[in-house]
Amino acid sequence: MCCRLCASILTVPCVGCEERAETVVVYCSVDETIARPLFDAFERETGIAVRAVTDHEAGKTTGLLQRIVAEGDRPRADVLFSGELFGTMQLAERGALEAFLPEMWEGIPSDYIDGKHRWTAVSLRARVLAFDGARVAADELPRSWEELGDARWAAHLAMANPLFGTTRGHVAAMFAAWGDERATQYLKSLRAHGAMFVDGNSSAVRAVLDGRARWCMTDMDDVYAARREGHVSLEMVLPDMGHGDTMWIPCTVALIRSGPHSAAGRRLVSFLVSAEVERTMAESDARFVPVRPGLRDGRLNPKTPPVGYAAIAAALPRSDRVVRDVLLR
C-alpha cells in the first residue's frame, strides 16, 4: 500500500519521484477488479511498486496497443498484461515485445507460449451467448456461432463493436476457421437482420438485462459479474465454433522492448504467468479457466482452435477491414 501511495500520490507534486523507489509500469486491459489484487500481491512479495495504466470499456485493449506502438523505441511501460491474445501477437510481429521466457512458466502447454518467447498466455475466458433465463429457454438458442447469423437469432442479438477487445479476436477467428467468404456473409447477415452493436461486452449484457436484446455475444466473466450482483436469471451457452467447442481467448503477459524498468518488468512477468496467479484468477469472480490442465477443476476443458492462434492473428487485418466495410459503414 505504501508503495502504491508513493507511486500514485507523491508523483503528483514531485517530478521524478518515482525513480527513487523501484517501480514497474504495466499497461493492463485485464479488468481492474481482477488485476489489482494481483499487483498488490506482487508489491507485497517484492516491494516493487506497480503503476498500472488501465483501459476503458470502449477502447479496451486496442487503445493500449496503439499507445505502445506510438511510443515506439521510447516506451513508457515495462509490461503488457492483456485481456486477449491477438493484439499481443500483432504487437510481437511489429517488434515491440522483448523475447523473455519467464521463470515460472512450467506447466503451460506450448500452444500458449510464443515460439520466440515474446509472450506467454494464461487464464482463458470463453466467448459465450448470454441470455435472460426468465425470458428465453436455452433450447431456443443456436448450437453453433454460425447459426447465429440466421434471421431468427440475428434479429435479437446484441454484440460489442468487433474492432475492439475479445469480440475482435472472435470475429477474426471466424475468418480463420470458416474462410473469408463465409465469415463475410455471416457479418452481412447480422447487419441485414438488425443485430444491435453496442460499445462493449458489458453494454451487450445490459441490453439483454434491459430487454432490448434477447441474447448477446460476450465473455464468460461478464455473465458471472452480472450474476454476482443479483442478475441471477442471466445464463449462458457455449456455441460451437466448428471444432466442438466455443472460442476460448487467453490473457497474455509480455515484456515490452526497452521498457524503462526492465528488471522489475521481468519479475512482474514471471509473477503473472505463475501457477499461483492462474489459480487466483480461476478462483476470482471472473472464474478464468487456467491454461495449465493440472489446475483445472475438470468441468471445463477448453480446446485450442484447430487453425491455431497465429492464423487468427493473421486474419485480424482482413476481418477488421470487412467489419468496417460491412458493419460500420
Binding site: 507511486a7 500514485s8 500520490i9 508523483t11 503528483v12 509500469v25 479488468d31 481492474e32 477488479t33 503503476r51 498500472a52 495504466v53 488501465t54 483501459d55 476503458h56 470499456e57 487503445g63 493500449l64 499507445r67 513508457r76 511501460a77 462493449g200 458489458s202 453494454s203 459479474a225 452480472a226 454476482r228 450482483e229 442478475h231
Partner: peptide
C-alpha cells in the same frame, strides 16, 4: 491515460461495467 493516478471517473466506469 497515464499510469498514475488512476482517475476516479475511470474507476466509476469500470465498476459500472463490472456490475
Amino acid at each position: 491515460g497515464v499510469p498514475s493516478p488512476t482517475m476516479l471517473a475511470m474507476l466509476v466506469i469500470e465498476k459500472f461495467h463490472r456490475f
